[in-house]
Simulated scan of single mutants.
Amino acid sequence: MSDITAEFLIVAAGRGTRAGSGIPKQYRPLRGKPVLYHTISACLASKAITRLRVVIHPDDLHLYNDTIALISDPRLEPPVFGGSSRSESVRRGLAACDGSHVLIHDGARPLLECRNIDALLESLRHERAAFLAVPVVDALWKAENGTAQSPVSRDGLWRAQTPQAFRLDDIRTAHAATSDDLPDDVETAKAYGLEVSIVEGSQTNIKITQAGDFALAEQLMGAEMDIRTGNGFDVHKFGPGDHVTLNGIRIPHDRGLVGHSDADVAMHTLTDAIFGALAEGDIGQWFPPSEAEWKGAASDIFLRKAVERTAERGFTITHMDCTIICEEPKIGPHTTAMRQKLAQITGVDVDRISVKATTTEQLGFAGRKEGIAAQATATLVKL
């Protein structure tokens, strides 16, 4: 990291109309937070930044205050209100700066990396101005009426990015010397006569301009995975009957299981595990035993509802594991059928579903053959 320090000036007073209707693009959500939040956070990640100011549109003050509500860095200074053009907004921002060097950055470039900031600051050791850019690598064609006419050499061509770094006095003077609304500060500096060096930037340092750029930025930032695990446990006692139903499979037995529904203790635990991963209560809250409509109901109704809620919340069930605890009946011969039944109900691949059994070595109620217990775990993922 360079020992040169600088102030950051983020220009975010534009309307961003090319990104579609609605609020300005810098305040639209990206991974759950405004674009400008990510841009500010990326800039403040560099320890070489002494202060940071944002130039905003006066009408956006409430949006800006909401954006920075979760940023407590003392280097973030109060915003500056911009003017009628980008150049005027930059001039107003520069007037508020008081350091020796300044980095001017677009509010809609949220993927800036610290290494790029360090490289710019290092260049200011021996250069008066520098900016990030990436070489043009694609073939270029001159077009007319939507058809290719002639190739254009890409030799020596670079795509400009921000930040653009200057000695503060130089860029102030350059802006004061021109009344033109030039597209970026490098052009302003060049018009004044400053030499500006190129520092190679990063292909990921994109500027969000079109509506489709939000999806690209999400992809480049890396989708944040929401991984959740839920647990379920249930017990049902034996009663009169000639079979038990476990994970939807009818198993002959000299007794049945007692419950308000079909008493499928294994499927109940899986349902609870899914609801638990969603933090949406348990099976009793969704299907109260006090309601007559659920008396004798097949438990796949409950499991299907949990799967439906999973999809509605944007999650995918990636794994289920169910352990049945009993002395009898024998579970092993039926586990394959159970896994296939659960796969049919949930849509989860059978190789992602585990069903197994154990005993309590004749200890406790299960060991005394008074009933069956089950426990389950479900893993849910949202990309």
Rank of each mutant, 00 (worst) to 15 (best):
H319L: 11
I324A: 01
F233H: 14
F214D: 01
I301V: 13
R86I: 09
D98C: 06
L257H: 08
Q26F: 03
D349Q: 13
D349A: 15
R125A: 11
R339K: 14
Y64V: 02
A217R: 08
T377H: 06
H319Y: 09
H101S: 03
G314V: 13
S354V: 15
E88R: 05
H334A: 00
Q26G: 01
A6Y: 05
M225V: 11
I208Q: 02
G83Y: 04
Q26E: 00
A374G: 06
E195Q: 13
Q164L: 03
P329L: 12
M225G: 00
S21I: 08
T335W: 07
L52G: 00
I283L: 15
K369W: 01
A165H: 11
F166E: 01
R352F: 11
L342Y: 05
A42R: 06
K33V: 05
S21T: 12
L61Q: 11
T188K: 14
T5N: 06
A273W: 12
D254G: 12
L168Y: 05
P78V: 04
Q362L: 09
G201Y: 12
D170R: 07
E113C: 00
Q219N: 10
D138V: 11
R368S: 09
P183T: 09
G20S: 09
E312D: 14
A189Q: 06
D272V: 12
R75L: 06
I274H: 01
L168R: 10
E218Y: 02
E312F: 06
G241N: 10
D169H: 13
A139R: 09
S85F: 10
T204V: 10
N205R: 04
G212D: 07
S299N: 10
L303Y: 08
L168F: 10
L70D: 14
A160V: 14
H105L: 03
A366W: 05
T310C: 15
H126A: 07
N65S: 09
K356H: 07
V102M: 02
T271E: 13
A343N: 06
D59P: 00
I40Y: 00
L216K: 10
I104F: 01
I71Q: 02
R31N: 10
W294K: 01
K142Y: 13
M267S: 01
A130V: 06
E200H: 13
K330S: 02
G16Y: 05
R167I: 10
I117S: 02
Q203V: 05
R352G: 04
C97V: 05
M267N: 01
L216W: 00
G193N: 09
R313K: 14
H260E: 02
D272Y: 07
D59H: 09
A108P: 01
K305F: 08
G241H: 14
T271P: 00
A376D: 11
V35G: 00
F8Y: 08
G314Q: 13
D170F: 12
I4A: 04
W158A: 03
D351Y: 11
Q362D: 04
V186P: 01
P58K: 10
N65Y: 07
L278K: 06
I68C: 01
L44T: 04
G281P: 05
D155A: 13
Y37A: 01
I317Q: 03
A343W: 12
E88M: 10
I274M: 10
D3S: 14
G296L: 08
L30M: 07
E291M: 03
S202H: 09
H236P: 00
H319N: 11
F315A: 04
P163V: 06
I251C: 04
K47V: 08
C326L: 15
I353V: 13
A306C: 05
